[in-house]
Design a binder for these strands. Structure first.
Length: 346
DNA sequence: CAAACGTGGAA
DNA sequence: TTTCCAAGTTT
């Protein structure tokens, strides 16, 4: 029965889905967009406080477009995948310039904006306007892979292509917003990766993976690869007035454009490193506890070292600054750096 | 197509 | 402790 899947999802969403997420009230295109970008590879519970602060400060596209990149990054600090913030900001400016300040109601125009791919574009169209556009995020991937018992890892183009076609095929003619929200709610709360609650699932009636006895066999897991471990040394250079030296990271790579602590190789003599690279003397005060930080593709072991700087050492312009106390709240700092500074009370 | 890109929570 | 992985996009 074609359409039975969508009908059941829509009915379930109205009865048991989520209706009180911050981006659902009010549900404007701008708020849908910001939330979708924040939610890329990020759980809703993590996003909620960031979304609240972000939209309170920049309630619409023109406000965001008028903001500075620095403050947008600072508002993103701790959320991860910082390129998203840069893209979001850049897209806001482009929307003001080329679309009169309103998000385009068009799949191609949306996907042409930085940070908006096919799935996010579809989500904006479906949730904000009820346009019949499919999405394919982790939830929908899992839901459809199970319902149709799709073999293969969705990272492979052929499998992804199949899933997109299935997503397209299930789209209802009406109630697209409730349907789309229902897919994500189902994936997040019922059709979970580990222990799906099939007894509570409104589409269990037609689920092929369940009929075969092992829903968790779908989708096939990604090929394994081990995560290398890297080590680095971060220097907490503290001045007499309590201020600490931060250095801006390059615009590409890890933590683009964020402020971090000066780094040297674990084997280097930190005091000599300071003289050579910063041009002033510092005395080693203490070795701080190691901070382990797990990235997606590698694990970082950070050995923080506390050093005292005599006098008010000056350093070059621009890419370096001395900060202290409340100031660090307004800066874009990577999570582990925030942890290290918090530990010494800076 | 593979790799890069953060972080935190759960098993 | 280790591993997985979550409302993906870009290069």
């Amino acid at each position: 029965m074609r359409g039975a899947f969508a009908a059941a999802v829509i009915d379930w969403q109205r009865r048991a889905g989520r209706h009180d997420l911050p981006w659902q009230r009010p549900r404007t295109p701008y708020r849908v967009w910001v939330s979708e970008v924040m939610l890329q590879q990020t759980r809703a519970e993590t996003v909620i406080p960031y979304f609240a602060r972000f939209t309170a400060r920049w309630p619409d596209v023109p406000a965001l477009a008028a903001a500075g990149r620095e403050e947008v990054l600072a508002a993103w600090s701790g959320l991860g995948y910082y390129r998203r913030a840069i893209h979001l900001h850049e897209a806001a400016r482009r929307i003001v310039e080329r679309h009169g300040g309103a998000l385009p109601r068009d799949l191609e125009a949306l996907a042409a904006l930085p940070g908006i791919g096919r799935s996010t574009a579809g989500a904006i169209l479906a949730l904000a306007w009820g346009e019949p556009a499919p999405i394919l995020d982790g939830n929908v991937r899992r839901l459809l892979a199970r319902w149709h018992a799709v073999e293969g890892w969705p990272g492979r183009a052929a499998v992804a292509c199949r899933l997109w076609a299935l997503a397209e095929g299930h789209l209802p003619r009406r109630d697209v917003a409730a349907y789309t929200q229902g897919l994500m709610d189902l994936g997040a709360t019922v059709c979970t990766p580990r222990r799906p609650a099939c007894a509570a699932c409104p589409v269990a009636f037609g689920c092929e993976a369940r009929r075969r006895g092992d829903p968790c066999a779908y989708p096939a897991p990604a090929p394994r690869r081990r995560r290398p471990r890297r080590r680095t040394r971060m220097l907490v250079l503290r001045r007499g007035d309590g201020r600490v030296l931060l250095a801006r990271r390059p615009p590409a790579g890890v933590w683009p454009g964020l402020w971090s602590l000066p780094e040297c190789a674990p084997g280097d003599d930190p005091e000599a490193w300071c003289r050579v690279h910063l041009g002033f003397a510092a005395r080693t005060e203490a070795v701080l506890p190691t901070v382990r930080h797990a990235f997606t593709h590698f694990e970082l072991e950070i050995e923080p070292l506390l050093l005292t700087v005599e006098g008010a050492a000056a350093v070059g312009e621009g890419q370096v600054c001395w900060v202290g106390g409340e100031e660090t709240q307004g800066l874009a700092l990577p999570a582990p750096v925030r942890a290290i500074l918090g530990r010494i009370g800076a």
